[in-house]
């Protein structure tokens, strides 16, 4: 297994994420976050999670960036630039240690694409073998989302609906 795609993508991810954190201008931070989402979408697509990649590209790189930008424009010129306080010493020491621990723990995770991984032997085979015969839907992800797990998706839709209503109630003060 070569790392010709993973390594550049991972480096770009780290670079854009770090740049978004240290950027002095919130506008550039938002645009950097958008490009971070785009690279993340490429990673998902490379790992075979095409549906997740699609959502990440459309929502993370597209819609969320627009929301951030509109919010920033509302904040005016004074709200876009700011002075960032230097991070506390505890964070500088503890966070790298935590990152090292997590990387160490990641060694125990199953290999990518391992057919004996716990996630691949539980219910996935059931879905893969039965979904087409039962729903005539070749995209198993869609079959699971909209049929086998339809109630979850319904509640997620309710959450989105509620967020739209909440924004309307909180932000529109001119309606009365």
């Amino acid at each position: 297994m070569t790392y010709s795609f993973e390594l550049p993508l991972l480096l770009l991810l780290l670079l854009t994420a770090g740049a978004a954190i240290v950027a002095k201008d919130l506008l550039s931070a938002v645009l950097l976050l958008g490009s971070y989402s785009f690279f993340l979408a490429l990673v998902w697509a490379w790992l075979g999670a095409v549906d997740v990649a699609f959502v990440e590209a459309v929502v993370g790189a597209g819609l969320a960036t627009v929301f951030f930008l509109l919010t920033l424009f509302n904040a005016g010129r004074g709200g876009i630039r700011f002075r960032r306080a230097s991070p506390p010493l505890a964070a500088v020491v503890v966070l790298p240690v935590l990152a090292g621990l997590l990387l160490y723990a990641a060694n125990d995770l199953p290999q990518l694409g391992d057919p004996q991984a716990p996630a691949s032997v539980h219910v996935s085979p059931e879905y893969l073998t039965r979904a087409y015969a039962e729903t005539q839907t070749t995209n198993i992800v869609t079959a699971v989302l909209m049929d086998y797990r339809a109630l979850d998706t319904l509640i997620e839709t309710v959450v989105v609906f509620t967020s739209g209503i909440a924004c309307w109630l909180l932000l529109r003060r001119d309606s009365e």
């Binding site: 627009v66 929301f67 739209g164 924004c167 309307w168 529109r172 003060r173």
Partner: peptide, 20 residues
């Protein structure tokens, strides 16, 4: 649902900028 909610949020942010 998603389309209407997203556009609604954008309109809300827009209006907040006009009145705020």
């Amino acid at each position: 649902d998603i389309a209407v909610a997203s556009v609604s949020i954008v309109f809300s942010l827009w209006r907040a900028g006009e009145t705020g």
